[in-house]
Nucleic acid binder design. Structure first.
Length: 502
RNA sequence: GCCCCCAUCGUCUAGAGGCCUAGGACGCCACCCUUUCAAGGUGGAGAUCACCGGUUCGAAUCCGGUUGGGGGCACCA
């Protein structure tokens, strides 16, 4: 691999989310790669909140981003540790909304040195120029009108009280850089227009503030999504104009929708919170995200965050985009769930199960559902029969549901009655899964029934469903009294159905 | 339209000139196990390595072109 370390500078990377929406899958993965890179190299990891777009930025989103980053297990050395909280680190403040004087100072410096100039063009004028360029099949870029203004024209605009934006004067030069992931990349900046760095209302723009902050925070490696690859020449032009050191850049592939377009809210579920709420484990999420565009080069696929940090090499990151494969995430989540101890799983399951189920019951439920869970939020449906009332369960009965193939309602009623008698003969202390199973198997055998056929109506009677956790474990958890009551109700339903068809 | 990036099974990927009649995983299909559903086990289908030309004794791997896909071209980030 190529040398990734600029000379004489300790490695510092950053993630710079914009609190204009909840933490996005793509941002999470970029944050993860930055984190892994920093950890692997022993560098410093900085979180900077890019909230210059005051109209769209909110504290709620900042909270969502920070909370979910923490949830994933990603930690940073500098930056706000808590949403709305105080900064940690010597290069603060770490919220761009609090760094406005710096940007103003640097913008003035560019103005003074002639690298930037005021632009009075109105949105309408710019739009007209753009349309004309499109009609002439030219590249849509600023025509440099305000660069050629006479002093009189300038004075006139100022008299009119029009507020100017500030544009960078982009030199027509070839920009070349050695991307950590893509290698040599070359752009022709003569194709770029003079872009705006500070809006007319005085608010500095993204391309400008990233560059200023990366320098101010001594960032050595800028690892970000491929969508920024084409923006890099702008950033380099800015750095040169400001006399900054150029960091190394690494552009990671995009995460794609199934149709291979850039992953979007429209086509996919993109908010990390949504996955969290459905009961995806952060460990599974991290493992999954890490492999979207990177692999250790072996056939191992289960990695903890620490193991990932140990193995991660930025040069091994792929160049091509990766489709977000929900099936694979589900599979991985299941693996992580099954790898948890019962106690650990009970703890994680707690928030997903209703309070009527006490902690001890949650722990007892775990062995019954562990192998059946894809997401934690799937748990309630699996064991709802435990807290549903007998009446609620009975409402789910349907004679059809209770009937195995080729058995009449009368026959089934008889079988269920037999089970009720067998189980009713047991006292509370003997009402355990192995005993229940033994009794029922014998009864089935005795009546000449296949065990499976005999169990089906019992399952429906007890859980209200044809699909359930193991029958006898479920019965044990439900308890003698309620099991017998439900069997009784089912017998009634079957008898009525039998009478109708007879 | 212009610029840039990318290209191995449906998907995530292994592969850095001969070990590849291309490996693994997910998904899919069988079968086994089995009280349902899962989990687990075994096996299978699935990629002429986008295409065309080179270079080479030899190319998925190197070079060029073509095609296809994606991204960027804002007083959003």
């Amino acid at each position: 691999m190529t040398d990734t370390q600029p000379a004489n500078r300790p490695i510092r990377v950053r993630m710079a989310p914009s609190p204009t929406g909840p933490l996005h899958i793509g941002t999470a993965r970029t944050s993860l790669y930055n984190y892994l890179f920093a950890r692997h190299a022993g560098g410093t990891y900085v979180l900077r909140i890019e909230d210059t777009d005051t109209a769209r930025s909110t504290v709620e989103y900042e909270r969502d981003i920070i909370d979910n980053l923490h949830w994933l297990g990603i930690t940073w050395d500098e930056g706000p540790q808590v949403a709305g909280g105080e900064d940690v680190g010597p290069y603060g403040p770490y919220r761009q909304s609090q760094r406005l004087e710096l940007y103003a100072r640097e913008a003035q410096r560019l103005l003074d040195s002639g690298h930037a100039y005021h632009c009075w063009c109105s949105p309408e004028e710019l739009e007209a120029v753009r349309r004309e360029q499109e009609a002439n099949r030219e590249a849509p870029r600023y025509n440099g009108r305000c660069l050629r203004l006479t002093d009189a024209e300038r004075a006139q605009f100022e008299r009119e009280g029009r507020r100017p934006a500030i544009r960078l004067r982009v030199p027509p030069e070839l920009i070349r850089f050695d991307d950590l992931i893509r290698g040599e990349v070359e752009f022709d900046n003569s194709l770029l227009g003079d872009f705006v760095i500070v809006r007319a209302n005085g608010v500095p723009l993204y391309h400008f503030v990233v560059v200023v902050d990366d320098e101010a925070m001594q960032i050595t490696h800028v690892i970000r999504g491929e969508d920024h690859l084409s923006n890099t020449p702008k950033h380099i032009a800015l750095m040169r104009a400001l006399g900054y050191a150029e960091p190394r850049f690494g552009h990671i592939p995009l995460i794609l929708n199934p149709d291979r377009s850039k992953m979007s809210k429209r086509r996919s579920q993109t908010a990390i919170t949504a996955y969290r709420e459905q009961g995806y484990l952060p460990e599974a999420m991290v493992n999954f995200l890490a492999f979207l565009g990177w692999s250790p080069g072996t056939e191992e696929e289960i990695f903890s965050l620490d193991q990932l940090a140990e193995r991660f090499e930025i040069g091994d990151v792929h160049k091509g985009g990766a489709v977000f494969d929900a099936d694979r995430l589900n599979y991985l989540n299941g693996v992580y769930i099954r790898n948890l101890t019962d106690q650990q799983l009970a703890l994680r399951l707690r928030p997903f199960l209703p309070a009527v189920l006490d902690d001890a019951s949650v722990l007892r439920v775990v062995p019954l559902i562990k192998e059946r869970l894809v997401r934690l939020a799937d748990a309630p449906e699996l064991v709802a029969f435990l807290w549903e009332t007998d009446a609620q369960v009975a409402a789910l009965y349907d004679a059809e549901l209770l009937l195995p193939r080729n058995r009449s309602a009368a026959e089934v009623a008889e079988a269920v009655a037999r089970a009720r008698d067998e189980l009713g003969a047991l006292d509370e202390a003997d009402f355990a899964a192995d005993v229940l199973e033994d009794r029922c198997r014998r009864a089935a055998d005795d009546m000449g029934w296949k065990a499976g056929d005999f169990f089906r109506p019992l399952r429906v009677a007890v859980t209200g469903r044809t699909i359930s956790p193991p029958l006898f474990g479920s019965m044990e958890l439900l308890g003698r009294e309620r099991v017998l009551a439900r069997l009784e109700t089912a017998i009634g339903v079957l008898a009525a159905a039998g009478a109708r068809t007879a």
